[in-house]
């Protein structure tokens, strides 16, 4: 039988264990610092390498064999147009799917299959979407290496993000709102379109922004469908002077996007091209980070403001 420890011994034990607490707090802070410092180093690296190249000409020039004359005009125009297609395709589809799953879906095996699919699609590597698009959009549908094919590919890629965010936004609306609408004689669609949708717009917006930020930085699927790396022209303009004023020719135009342009420059051995890559990377980084930051801010506001 042990004798009971003296008070001094117990105190020593407590101090010893409290030291572990402190040690772990330090380790935890250090681990967090590794993440944050890497982030800072990454940003600083891009800034130092890329800032000298970043000027107005860089944004308004086409890529060129001479690194000092090269620019990202075709890349950012391409990215913008691809994003436009992605948003037009992914947002209505994703929101509609989320509405169905939250407000309409009966609890049965069909719903179960759809839910499992959405979860699974979120984990499919982006390059597999590229292969899907290559086989389906490029060859079977004959869309070619076009802006339309790329935009649809990225839309499929971010669909799970939009669906999940919309579902969360819808789920946070209390059922009293639904019951109130029904009590006034609204049909299900009236209830959804006049109450659920407007109230969940901030949440949906957050998800859409995060999805778009992801899509704009995606390289692998767009390379897989065969986007060209050297494009020294712009797609036809969507607005024309003559009737019918709107032209959709740009949808089928060949294109390049920001990450592909950056990849192309990074994989060249000359340091001057790598400086171009850093400058393009800087633009891309600022774009995605500001989109992400906006989404984080929106969510923060949302959490503060909306109390049902």
């Amino acid at each position: 039988m042990n004798t009971a420890p003296s008070v001094a011994e117990v105190r020593a034990l407590i101090v010893k264990h409290k030291r572990w607490d402190l040690a772990f707090a330090v380790i935890g802070t250090l681990a967090l610092m590794v993440g944050i410092l890497t982030f800072v180093a990454l940003f600083a690296d891009m800034l130092i390498d890329g800032m000298p190249r970043l000027n107005y000409d860089f944004l308004t020039s086409f890529p060129s064999r001479r690194p000092e004359q090269a620019g990202i005009l075709s890349a950012w125009v391409g990215s913008t147009l691809v994003m436009l297609v992605t948003a037009v395709a992914a947002v209505p589809l994703g929101v509609a799917a989320a509405i169905y799953l939250e407000e309409y879906a009966p609890k049965n095996w069909v719903t179960e299959i759809i839910e499992v699919n959405v979860t699974n699609l979120a984990g499919v590597p982006s390059i597999v979407y590229g292969l899907l698009a290559l086989g389906l959009f490029v060859y079977q549908f004959g869309l070619g290496q076009s802006i339309l094919a790329a935009g649809l590919t990225l839309a499929l890629l971010i669909l799970p993000v939009v669906i999940v965010a919309t579902r969360e936004a819808i789920r946070s609306i209390p059922s009293a709102i639904r019951e109130g609408a029904y009590a006034l004689g609204a049909t299900r669609w009236q209830m959804v379109s006049q109450h659920i949708l407007p109230y969940s717009i901030p949440g949906i917006l957050t998800g859409v922004i995060i999805g778009m930020a992801r899509a704009i930085g995606e390289t692998a699927p767009v390379i897989t469908i065969g986007a060209l790396t050297f494009i020294a022209f712009l797609p036809p303009t969507p607005i024309s002077g003559a009737f019918p004023f709107l032209s959709f020719e740009w949808l089928t135009a060949p294109f390049t996007v920001m990450p592909i342009q950056m990849f192309n420059w990074t994989s060249r051995p000359e340091a001057a091209f790598q400086a171009n890559a850093a400058a393009a990377g800087l633009v891309l980084l600022v774009m995605t980070l500001s989109m992400n930051a906006l989404a984080i801010y929106l969510r923060y506001k949302l959490r503060k403001n909306i109390q049902w």
Binding site: M46, P259, M262, G281
Partner: peptide, 19 residues
Amino acid sequence: FLELLGGVPTIIYGYFALL
């Protein structure tokens, strides 16, 4: 901050790793 770390495009991480 961590969320932003996850939002960085992978091509930029590639550049960072290589150079």
